[in-house]
Simulated scan of single mutants.
Amino acid sequence: MKKLLFALTTIFIIGFSTDTFAQYDYNWAVGFRVGEPLGFNVRKYFQNGDKAFDINIGTYGFIYNRQRRYNAGEYKTAGLMIQGIYLWQNQVFNRDWAHVYYGFGGQINNRSHYADILKNEKIDHIKKISLGPTGTAGIELKIPNQPLAFFVDAGLYIEALPSPFFWNGQISSGLRLNIIK
């Protein structure tokens, strides 16, 4: 289901985007996202707003996938996540208030792992640091005459270390305040 949702979202966004570049008057944006990941978002716009870099700091596995099989054990709690993604943006329907974006980057997570082999020992869990590539695609709608924008995006994180090819779908929405012209 998650793969289908990601594929449909990507097809929709790319299909309705145009070759016109976003003309952002702002250089920076800060915001809050709800979903996976849940947390704080900082975006730096480059050139005419057609490229950007997102930094997300927040939780990993808080809203969904909190209890999930993982590497001969399971995750039972949420963890800390730091994510950096380079983005490309385009206007939708030649409207300045609607933009689609897509991009790729990396993600680092810190989360407690409850391994099956540890159940007979005094230690019941161990902290795991994981990292891997991530991709996202989304749509951003600016509120007219305001520096606020609402966004919805979906993506995929594929762990490279320590458990290669463990994947997690990521869907979130939120508000961003555009600052610093």
Rank of each mutant, 00 (worst) to 15 (best):
I11V: 15
I11C: 07
G15N: 03
G15H: 04
S17C: 08
T18Y: 06
D19A: 03
D19R: 06
F21A: 09
N27R: 07
N27E: 10
G31Y: 05
R33I: 00
V34C: 10
G35T: 03
G35S: 08
F40W: 13
F40A: 09
N41M: 11
V42K: 10
Y45W: 08
Q47K: 12
N48V: 09
K51R: 12
F53T: 08
I55N: 03
N56D: 15
I57F: 11
T59M: 12
T59L: 14
Y60V: 08
G61C: 06
G61I: 04
I63F: 13
N65L: 08
R68C: 04
R69H: 06
R69K: 12
N71E: 04
N71I: 02
G73W: 02
K76Q: 15
T77M: 09
L80K: 04
Q83N: 15
I85G: 01
L87T: 02
Q89P: 00
W97G: 05
W97D: 15
W97I: 11
H99V: 02
Y101V: 01
Y102I: 03
G103V: 02
G105S: 08
G105F: 02
G106V: 12
G106Q: 05
I108M: 14
S112A: 12
S112I: 00
Y114S: 10
Y114E: 10
A115I: 00
A115N: 06
A115F: 10
D116G: 02
I117M: 10
N120F: 09
E121T: 14
I123D: 14
K127D: 15
L131Q: 05
P133S: 12
T134F: 01
A137H: 00
I139R: 04
I139F: 13
L141T: 05
Q146C: 11
P147L: 08
P147M: 07
P147T: 08
